[in-house]
Each structure stands twice: as C-alpha cells, then as structure tokens.
C-alpha cells in the first residue's frame, strides 16, 4: 500500500467521522443548551411542581425560550423554588405569569410563560408573581368524584 494512498484513506475516514459528529450535533440534536452569557435567570415559586425536571423546556406561545435551570425546596415557605434560564433574545414584561403544563395527556411537563402588559421588563434575579401549579391527576379525579357525589346526594 502506497503511503500517500494510505494517508488519503485515513484523511477521508477522519473527515467522515467529523461530518457524522456534526450531523449528530446539528441535525439530530440541537445545540439548544442556553449558556449563561446569553440569558437571564428568573425565579418562579410553585406549591406543587408535579413531575417537572431540571432542563425541562420553558415555552411561550409554544416556542422554546429557555430551560429550567434548577429546582429547590424552600424550607421557610414550604414551596418549590424553580429557577428558569431564559434566552436574552426574549425579554418578558414584569407581570409575566408562569404555569406548569403537560405536553399531551401523559407527556413531559414544561413551564409555559404568558406575557403580561407591564412596560418594565424582567431582569435577572426577579421573581414571577403569578404562577399556576401543576395539575395533579389524582387531585383532579378526587375533585371530580367529590363533585359527582354531591350532585347525587339530594336525591
């Protein structure tokens, strides 16, 4: 085997390997890791976060605008403290509300942001005032049964 031919083959192999990596990075995955430099953190407090996980998407109008950075339990207020990392390209008004939603009936949970009307924009470290907890299926069924029982009792 001629030496230059061999080099050529190895070169092709390396180029193909790197191309495969790029394909995986750009086409299969998305380099959607929001890094700290281009984002701002806001805090949202919930009484119940359901099955929300760190790194879950944060969406507004269905568009991913950020990711859940961390979830902590606040021992003073007995609430969940969720830190959200939002892309700097998407400024939100200060009275924006956050809700924990589920994609589909049994899909993953994410945070939905609904913009308010305030003229002052959120900045890093702010806390969202209005939040809506995750819907817990068991509670929902419990309420439904309770309601049914009450409907039936007068008769």
């Amino acid at each position: 085997m001629n030496k230059t031919v061999l080099d050529l083959w190895v070169g092709l192999f390396v180029v193909a390997g790197i191309a495969a990596l790029l394909f995986l990075a750009l086409k299969v995955g998305s380099m959607n890791t929001v890094n700290a430099a281009d984002s701002y953190d806001v805090v949202a407090r919930f009484e119940n976060i359901g099955g929300l996980k760190a790194r879950a998407p944060v969406k507004s109008a269905g568009v991913v605008v950020g990711r859940v950075d961390s979830i902590q339990f606040d021992t003073e207020l007995y609430e969940a403290k969720v830190t959200i990392r939002v892309d700097k390209r998407y400024p939100f008004p200060r009275d924006t509300s956050a809700a924990i939603l589920t994609s589909g009936l049994l899909g993953e949970q994410y945070i939905g942001l609904a913009a308010g009307g305030d003229s002052v924009m959120l900045k890093s470290g702010d806390t969202l005032k209005i939040t809506q907890d995750a819907v817990v299926l068991e509670n929902l069924i419990g309420q439904f049964l309770y309601g049914k029982a009450q409907e039936g009792s007068p008769q």
């Binding site: 990075a25 086409k27 299969v28 998305s30 380099m31 959607n32 890791t33 991913v64």
Partner: peptide, 19 residues
C-alpha cells in the same frame, strides 16, 4: 420526525456523553 428529535436530543447530555 426531525423536529421532535431535535427538541429531545441534547448536544451536551446525549451526544457529547456518547462520544
């Protein structure tokens, strides 16, 4: 097919760890 794949596969978590 592609869109769901892209939103679920994370570069750092999945691809870099695989490498």
């Amino acid at each position: 097919f592609w869109a769901q794949m892209q939103s679920a596969v994370d570069f750092e978590q999945d691809i870099l760890n695989g490498v």
